[in-house]
Design a protein around this nucleic acid. Structure first.
Lengths: 310, 310
DNA sequence: CCGGCGGAAATATCATGTTGCTTGGCTTAG
DNA sequence: CTAAGCCAAGCAACATGATATTTCCGCCGG
């Protein structure tokens, strides 16, 4: 009975775009028969559709005489309205096609700042050339946030260090660059003397680290590295950004293991020394969902690979 | 074969508002089954309509898994677009209903200035109160132009003198006021002395008349009046507006037969004297098409009658 | 580790309703 | 009186919608 009120079943056939298309044709031709020809339908159904539309609206759109139809004042107004609706619908289709094909749209890109200082600018430049219609939103996120945002569809792609296998479920990683792990120390520090340093040389140092809360995998990596020597590194401080970590080392408060890319940020304030024997390098690249990647995202991935090839 | 190219018959079922309504429901519920309930349809047809829409667009709007549907980036964009189209369509319907019922819209009103100086302001004031949403366009037209414009649907209603039967085909006239025909003369003119004047008294005067081109029926009236006396009036000048006609009389160049309403425009510059015996009065009222009058026009007619009653 | 269970979407099949076509009647203009 | 154009009626075809069934996947409990 509620249904009966809300929807009188057979009575009320809702207005459709077809009615508007037909109406516009008839209004423009001022003649049902010509409009029917233009629409590739025959005249009687067209007459009926117009009548249905008028009933649905409860408004007479045409004045009818035996020989002609002519718009009423209301019909003239509705002609403008109908044209606007049809145009809006057409624009909607065009827009979604453009988005789908990657001509327009936006993507959200997460990035780990200190790891991507060399990679990100090149990538953005190439992407801008390949997909000028896409607006890029950059998000400086921690690894944790990247993973969560990628899964929640808040992020389309992340420029970051390769996550461990366990964290990768449903995501794909594409390597762009490898960075050796280095010791970063104050220029006056003993480590800064030779060209190379072994883990044993620094096993007793105070370590400056990235914060465990934001970068748990950094701590795992550190622990795993020294476990081979049967040692546990002494983590004296934790920092949540590279800038403050660099400042702490420059102040002589300890040393740190960092990717060689950090050299771009330290300048001459710190010395970076390679480790010998060299541990596994850090893999930096793109992370993204392995299904449902939009055209824009795919273009971004391709641009990143092209920009960092060689 | 041409048809084959232009319209692949079964393949291309054009997008309709129904697709958009269904799509919006599914997108908002993020769930086909709930959306189907909301739309009072069953789930399978809804799935199919969504699929049809995607095929029509050539764009994947949802990412499907066995347990759920989720919008793609393109789908999110199309959701906004579809909502906009539906809203626009709703506005179109509301607008045309408002126009049809006379809440909104515009009407074009023709008027004969010198005959309606007393009628038009009252009418407009009353109409403004009765139909505040209707914009009125005023057109100062000659009788000829009124008739042509009414027939061409350029004018909805005209405030003017009653036209002859022959000119009335397809139009209706409603009387609002009667004005006696008077002699207008310079205050120093002999006619201005007594209270009343007979036609015979002025049969030899120079007549100032409205122009024959714009007001042929004025000349017919003048000729008919004097024909009863077996005379032909001497039309010395023709003017296309009341202001210049008044100026000519004031200059002493002749006398004129005018409606008494002209008194409002002459002030003390001219004297108006009744004719004795009084000829048929001038009927001033509304003229409009007797079919297809819009609600706004009907309201205008009603307002005019109310304002000029009594 | 595996198999059953449950929820949700897809598929298949059928019925109904609507669109569209054809024919024919009616009105008016020329 | 003919011709043009709109409307009405009846019929065919298709698209939409309903019901029943299947498939897929995540979730549990064994």
């Amino acid at each position: 009975m509620l249904l009966g009120l809300a929807c009188p079943k057979g009575m009320l056939a809702l207005m459709e775009l077809r009615h508007l298309r037909y109406f516009v044709a008839v209004a423009e031709e001022q003649n049902v028969t010509r409009a029917a020809a233009r629409l590739h339908v025959s005249q009687p159904p067209l007459s009926r559709q117009i009548r249905d539309l008028e009933e649905e609206l409860g408004v007479a759109l045409f004045e009818r005489s035996a020989k002609s139809v002519r718009l009423t004042d209301a019909g003239r107004v509705f002609l403008e309205e109908a044209r606007a609706v049809l145009q809006r619908a057409g624009e909607a289709v065009q827009t979604v096609k453009a988005v789908s094909s990657g001509e327009k749209g936006e993507i959200h890109v997460g990035y780990a700042p200190s790891l991507t200082v060399q990679i990100l600018p090149k990538t953005l430049r190439t992407f801008q050339e390949n997909a000028p219609g896409i607006r890029v939103h950059l998000h400086d996120f921690s690894t944790e946030e990247m993973l969560a945002s990628l899964r929640a569809n808040k992020l389309h792609v992340a420029l970051m260090i390769a996550p461990s296998e366990k964290l990768l479920r449903g995501l794909r990683f594409v390597e762009l660059h490898r960075y050796a792990l280095c010791v970063a120390a104050h220029p006056a520090h003993p480590c800064a003397r030779g060209r190379k340093v072994s883990l044993a040389d620094i096993a007793n140092e105070r370590f400056i680290a990235y914060s465990r809360a934001d970068y748990p995998e950094y701590h795992e990596m550190l622990a795993a590295l020294f476990k081979k020597l049967g040692r546990v590194p002494h983590i004296a401080e934790e920092h949540d950004s590279s800038t403050s970590l660099i400042a702490a080392i420059e102040a002589g408060r300890g040393v740190a293991l960092v990717p060689e890319s950090l050299g771009c940020l330290t300048g001459e304030r710190l010395k970076l020394r390679s480790l010998s024997p060299a541990p596994a390098p850090l893999l930096v690249g793109l992370l993204f969902r392995d299904s449902g990647t939009s055209a824009a995202t795919q273009k971004f991935i391709a641009s990143a690979q092209a920009a960092n090839r060689k």
